[in-house]
Nucleic acid binder design. Structure first.
Lengths: 233, 233
DNA sequence: CTAAATTTGTGCTTTAAAACATTGTTGTCA
DNA sequence: TGACAACAATGTTTTAAAGCACAAATTTAG
């Protein structure tokens, strides 16, 4: 019997959200040339400084995009869910990767060689425009995040991170637990704070009945207050 | 005699860096439809939350792109020089503006209605790709800036801002003075710190013979040290 | 040309968050 | 199963930067 992973994996035409704007020829071309790659938990998919070789689509799993800053302190820039593209910014800007990407949990990535990706971008205007839309939204989010991370206080930043996680990965069947399990360290790297402070602030939120914790399981109890905390800084 | 401003103003075909990929028809169309707008020092060009109506190109002058954060503390996101586009991100992402733009000094802006801009984007692949390239570079810069602003200490952030200003606006004829005059407040908003701290840190740099100051005139004396300070945080 | 307002410059105080230290908890694998 | 490693929790100390207050200088306005 096939691996559970493989049998559950959606085919590229279901994962690639820009599939609909491809011509029949392009579809065939992509189908013939894309490759599938599996990554273990915490495995690195690509590193800052490397030359970009592929446009990538997350087919299954969860990955983090992060930068190593001063004293190799890491800052998580964004987190991806299946169907989201990555690795293409550097190709388009003719730069090396300026972020690292690593798997939060076992993940599958579909990859398309840079030259193939570029040739479609250059020939299919609707395809090009879709990526323009995507990156325009990302830039807006990035600028917003800059201000949030620099101006809000610890509680505000952590509250924001929790809301972001819920928005991005949703809830489990119980309708309350955030559908991703992060280490305290990752949570800290997402919220621009030290691990100790993430732990401390999380405990405070529990004491104030804003969230509930069970190990890495996080439940949002009082969403209104969390939103208020995130807004006030 | 015509205004000095007007007589020195470059025509749109010289300012618009994407002019070369336009077809003759498109060039004529743009020429017939673009409008010219003058802004006084500190005048606001567009505001956060407004619906975007035009793609804009800075024809002359200097402008700041900034966000109002917690307690209306402002953060300068980037600064533009002639030939740079703005206001188009929101159009493409179908969002309201997420930044404010205001003139640092008297500035001239060429504007092209959103629907015209979109119709060219959708019909001219090379044009679309140019904007994709531009925004891809901007996103890389934005993510880098996030980490710099969150992780570096005050001296590092100010050093970085000074280097950024020099890189962006260059030097005056004396080969040393940075070719833009900012208030201490703007400098603080660029470096994510309070005005007092910008002033204080600037004074320290003068005492250490890293820069020289004469009012708002800033000269970089010891570039190496400035780079080192900016890197170390 | 003075008066008011803004900008700049400094010292002092307070505070939020980092850094450090220690202990408990859970998980992993020889 | 016991030992080691990674992770989580919490208290204490230190420090970078904000906040505040005020004076001096410069710009703007009446």
């Amino acid at each position: 019997m096939a691996k559970r992973n493989t049998s559950e994996l959606k085919p590229i035409e279901d994962v690639l959200t820009v599939w609909d704007v491809l011509t029949p020829d392009e579809r065939q071309f992509v189908k013939n040339h894309f490759t599938t790659h599996y990554f273990k938990k915490n495995e690195i998919i690509h590193c800052e400084g490397e030359l970009p070789t592929h446009m990538m689509v997350l087919a299954a799993g969860k990955v983090k995009v992060y930068k190593e800053g001063v004293g190799s302190r890491t800052q998580i820039i964004r987190m991806l869910k299946p169907g989201e593209h990555f690795g293409y910014r550097a190709i388009i800007a003719s730069q090396t990767y300026n972020t690292n990407v690593a798997a939060f949990e076992p993940s599958t990535v579909y990859m398309l060689k840079a030259d193939i990706f570029l040739s479609i971008l250059r020939n299919n205007n609707a395809f090009c425009y879709r990526f323009l839309e995507e990156i325009a939204a990302d830039l807006g989010a990035s600028d917003a995040r800059t201000v949030n991370l620099t101006q809000k206080h610890i509680r505000g930043r952590l509250a924001e991170a929790l809301l972001l996680l819920r928005k991005n990965y949703g809830l489990e069947e119980d309708g309350a637990t955030i559908n991703i399990y992060l280490s305290r360290e990752d949570l800290a790297n997402l919220s621009n704070m030290t691990t100790s402070n993430a732990i401390r602030t999380l405990s405070n939120f529990v004491n104030e009945h804003i969230i509930a914790m069970d190990g890495r399981k996080l439940k949002i109890i009082d969403e209104e207050r969390l939103i208020k905390i995130s807004k006030m800084g």
